[in-house]
Design a protein around this nucleic acid. Structure first.
Lengths: 141, 141
DNA sequence: GTAATTGCAAAAGATTTGCCCCATT
DNA sequence: AATGGGGCAAATCTTTTGCAATTAC
């Protein structure tokens, strides 16, 4: 196997993901990284996100809300809540007895790489005003 | 609100999704639909998938494997297993006590629209040969 | 010095949209 | 007849990739 190098770009990208709980998109990570390495390129961000994912240091979060993949650098197991109105995405605890569930799936799979649990709904902030904005999810906060 | 029409295209697309458990992509649905309506367009498929999703008749499934969204026309609650090698995607039962978990989340959200539980791993077919294909997920079956 | 990694720009996919015509109601 | 929806093609958006230059080891 080929050896990897510790580039500044890679370190900065991983750092950004480990220090936030905002689950940024590649574009957002790029914007943050540019404040530290002004001429970093978006391609480098994507390449490193894929690399870090293969190393198991980072994981992808997919959602019906928004068309970009979001990333998570917090490795402790947890689930995600997605607000279908404002798009906010935050961490929630896994349900109790989840390890048991994982065990039960072992007859269908020999290896479980990861478990993604995503709850979609309206967050506490968006719920009260939801009856007024029927057409578009045009809420901002 | 504006009234909707029952077009042949819409019916065929919904029918395809309700009769399969293969969770096809938009492209795949398009191919299937063309066997019934030869000149249906891909744009129409996408437009109707969005429409049917808004109606709650269909839902999206996202995965780290593959770059296209896949769709599910089976409304009964269930989870999904994704094979990280061959990309196969199949239904699995939700863990016991999941309703309880849902209730526990109600303080973070006033409404839960949907729950997506995705298990990633190697399926029974792919597991034995996994040690031979290390670089690329080039398995087919 | 060597090869992994970067920046840049072009390419590749996936999905959406504008426009005009057709078909459902 | 009115207008929602379809077909087609162009546009948009996200992500990947080729290549020459750079940099970590």
């Amino acid at each position: 196997m080929k050896k990897t190098r510790n580039t500044r770009q890679r370190g900065v990208i991983l750092g950004i993901l480990q220090e936030t709980r905002e689950h940024p998109t590649a574009e957002k990570i790029y914007q943050n990284a540019r404040q530290i390495i002004p001429n970093i390129s978006l391609g480098t961000v994507y390449r490193n996100l894929n690399f870090l994912q293969n190393q198991g240091l980072v994981r992808e979060i997919h959602s019906c809300y928004g068309s970009s993949t979001r990333f998570d650098g917090i490795l402790a197991p947890h689930a995600h809540f997605h607000c279908v109105r404002c798009g906010i995405l935050f961490d929630i605890a896994l349900p109790q007895g989840f390890e048991q569930f994982q065990l039960n799936q072992m007859d269908m799979a020999s290896t479980i790489t990861s478990i993604d649990l995503n709850i979609m709904g309206e967050c506490a902030k968006c719920a009260p005003c939801s009856s007024f904005t029927t057409e578009d999810q045009g809420s901002t906060h």
